[in-house]
Simulated scan of single mutants.
Amino acid sequence: MHILFIGYGKTSQRVAKQLFEQGHQITTISQSPKTDEFATHLIQDVHQLDLAHVAAIDWVYVLLSPSHSTIEAYQQTYVDSVAAIVAALKQHPIQKIVVVSSTRVYGENKGERIDDELLVQPVDAQGRLLLQMEQLYQQAFPNQCIIIRPTGIYGTSVARMIKLAEITKSYPQIHYSNRIHIDDLARFLAQLIHVEHPKNSYIVSNNQPIPLHEIIQWFQRQLPLPELVLESGQLSGKRIYATRMLETGFELEHEDCFGDYLKMLEKI
Rank of each mutant, 00 (worst) to 15 (best):
R128L: 10
H68W: 02
L246Q: 15
S81K: 04
V120F: 04
F5N: 00
H175K: 14
F219N: 00
L265Q: 07
L136T: 08
Q76D: 14
I71M: 01
P142N: 09
I26Y: 00
N207D: 15
T151W: 01
K263N: 07
L252D: 13
V105R: 06
H2F: 00
Q135G: 02
V54H: 12
G152S: 11
G155Q: 08
Q91P: 01
S236D: 09
Q173N: 15
E134M: 01
K34M: 07
P172I: 03
E214S: 13
L252P: 04
V98E: 05
K199A: 15
T28I: 10
A190I: 07
V229Q: 10
Y154P: 07
I182Y: 03
L223V: 13
M1D: 11
I147N: 04
A83C: 03
I71R: 06
N143D: 13
M245K: 05
A55V: 13
S201M: 08
E117F: 10
F38D: 12
E196V: 11
A242S: 11
E21C: 03
S232M: 02
S32G: 13
H197I: 12
T27W: 06
K110T: 14
S205N: 07
H53E: 15
Q44A: 09
E37W: 11
A125D: 15
G111W: 09
K34Y: 10
L19D: 05
P198I: 02
L130E: 03
K17G: 00
E37N: 12
V62A: 05
V79R: 00
E108V: 14
Q208S: 08
N207F: 02
Y74G: 03
R104I: 09
K263S: 14
T77G: 00
E72K: 14
F219M: 01
S102K: 04
R239L: 02
Y154F: 05
V158I: 15
D58P: 11
P93W: 00
V195N: 06
A56Q: 15
R128D: 11
Q44W: 12
S12N: 00
A87D: 13
Q217A: 14
V79H: 00
